[in-house]
Structure formats: C-alpha cells, structure tokens
C-alpha cells in the first residue's frame, strides 16, 4: 500500500487522475449527459447556428460552448468526440499491447536469429516518425474507424515489443526462471506466467503514455482529413471542421475540442511520469 500513497501524495497527479476520471466517465456516458444528439439532424435548428458560448436561443436552451454553423451544440459534439477519440485510442492500445508483448516475449525467449530478425524490424519501424507511417497506411487502406485503429496498432506494437523484450532479457537470467526450467515447465508457461508478470512495470508505464500518443495520432489523421469519416467526428475532426471559422471569429468551434484534447494528453502524461517514478524497479525491494 506504500505505493498507492506514494502515487497520490502529489496534488498535480491527483488533479490529473481526477480529470482523466471525469473525461472517461463523460465519454462513456456521453449519450446521457449531452443535451442533444449532435448527429441527429432532426434536433438541429439552423436558427441556432453560430451562437457564442453561454448564450441561450429563443427557446431559452443554454449552449454552454456555443453552436456550429448548423446549429449543433458544441458541448454535445465534444462529448461525443471524446467518446470516439478515447474509444479508438483504448482499443488500438489494447491490441498493440497484446501483439507487441507477445512478439517481445517470443523474441527474448527464442533468442538467436528469431530475435535478431524481429528486433531489426522493430528498429526499422521505430526509425520513422509514427504519424508518417500512419499516414502512409491510411493512404493505402483508406479511411474508417477500423483502418485508423489498424494504423495505430501498426505504429505502436514495435515500442511494446522492444520494451517487453528488453525487460524479459533481464528477467530471463534471473534464478526464478532457472527454477521454473528446472521444474520442466513448458516454455509458454515460463514466458507468460513467470517472465511476463515481472515485466508489468515497464509495460504499464509505456501503455499509459502510448494511449496519449494514440489519441494524438488519431487526431492528427482526422485533422488532416484522412482519419475518421465525417459521420464519426472525433476531437481531431471537430478541430478540423471548426478551423475555417477561426478567422471569422467563431473561435469556439475549434478551441474547445482542442483544449479537451490537450488536457487529456497532458493528464495522461502526468500520470505516466508518476507511474514511472513509483514503479521504477530500483525503488522496488
């Protein structure tokens, strides 16, 4: 329990955790929290178009963050956008963790040529900027929620593979692994039941930070118009859609989704940094 208290003794980290908690809940319950369904055209009135934040329409409905050029409530759009952005990022991260971890463990355990080949692929992959690879992939695959997820997994698996392989190489030399081999446990049991649980610290630190990177890759792709389709507007797409109105003074269309995006990414990184400090193997035992 010493770890938990070490984790929460910083106000900044508590704030970041609180913020993340709220955004995750908001994303999960968006349909119940949002004042309107921003993509049900029947709920939009052109007369409400381009209202600035905190104004009411003729019916007295309050628009917290204003409306867009079609009379859509920006607050509702941000909630729905958060749902899509976080959803894509979490699913992509989960797939990349499973894939990268398996490859990293295999590489460490097999060693020799398998290890050399896998790690050269990883090196190659990591020598290109992530967004560039993702862009090339969606250019090849086309847009859509699954395509973007695939692109993010393709960019991120290598980092997990390298991290897990590095940790597993260290663990493999420890005596508890020899003890497991001495009991003739199968290689998969040794890898998944013994080595992997001892690699969880670096893995969970990386996964936390990579969620933020997944969010920003998706936002970048969507902002560039090659990510999600217009029917599934994530935060990145909202920023892109609002962008042309910036110069005409309707700043709220892009600024609010942008602020939420930045806040989520910063909060995740604060938690990730703290996790790194608390789970540092050197501070263990």
């Amino acid at each position: 329990m010493g770890k938990l208290s070490a984790f929460t003794d910083s106000k900044l980290v508590l704030l970041a955790i609180g913020l993340l908690g709220i955004t995750i809940l908001a994303a999960l319950f968006a349909p119940w929290i949002a004042p309107q369904d921003p993509y049900d055209l029947a709920q939009l009135y052109i007369l409400d178009a381009r209202l600035p934040p905190l104004t009411r329409n003729a019916d007295g409905t309050l628009f917290l963050l204003g409306t867009d050029d079609q009379g859509r409530d920006v607050f509702s759009a941000v909630l729905y956008g958060l749902r899509i952005s976080l959803g894509v990022a979490f699913v992509a991260t989960a797939i990349a963790v499973v894939l990268g971890t398996s490859i990293g463990l295999l590489s460490a355990y097999a060693g020799g040529r398998t290890d050399a080949v896998l790690m050269r692929i990883v090196d190659m992959q990591l020598s290109f900027p992530a967004v560039l690879i993702a862009l090339m992939l969606v250019a090849l695959l086309g847009t859509g929620i699954e395509k973007v997820t695939i692109a993010i997994v393709a960019v991120q698996w290598a980092r997990y593979a390298r991290t897990v392989r590095g940790a597993a190489m260290v663990e493999r030399e420890r005596e508890y692994v020899e003890a497991a081999q001495c009991l003739a446990y199968s290689p998969s049991r040794v890898m998944f039941r013994h080595i992997l649980p001892n690699c969880m610290a670096p893995l969970s630190i990386l996964a936390t930070v990579e969620v933020a990177s997944a969010i920003s890759i998706e936002a970048t792709l969507s902002f560039l118009g090659v990510g999600l389709p217009i029917t599934q507007p994530s935060l990145g797409l909202l920023i892109a859609n609002g962008y042309p109105f910036m110069l005409s003074g309707n700043y709220w269309l892009s600024i609010y989704p942008g602020l939420v995006l930045i806040a989520v990414i910063i909060a995740i990184n604060i938690v990730g940094d703290r996790l790194r400090e608390v789970l540092n193997p050197r501070s263990e035992r």
Binding site: E175, Y176, E178, L183, A184, R189, P197, N198
Partner: peptide
C-alpha cells in the same frame, strides 16, 4: 531438483508462496 544460491531471486516475486508450491503439484 535444484536449490539455488540466492533465496530471494529464485522465487517469482509476483507469486504467492502457495502458488509457488502448488504450481509443480499441478503441472506434474
């Protein structure tokens, strides 16, 4: 079977003592 030099390092830190002892009973 073998007994190792370093008593801490020869046990998997992520298992309980019961898991450590029950695993070979189950596997074999």
């Amino acid at each position: 079977q073998m007994i190792f030099q370093n008593p801490y390092a020869s046990l998997n830190a992520r298992q309980t003592i019961r898991e450590i002892i029950e695993e070979p009973l189950r596997v074999h």
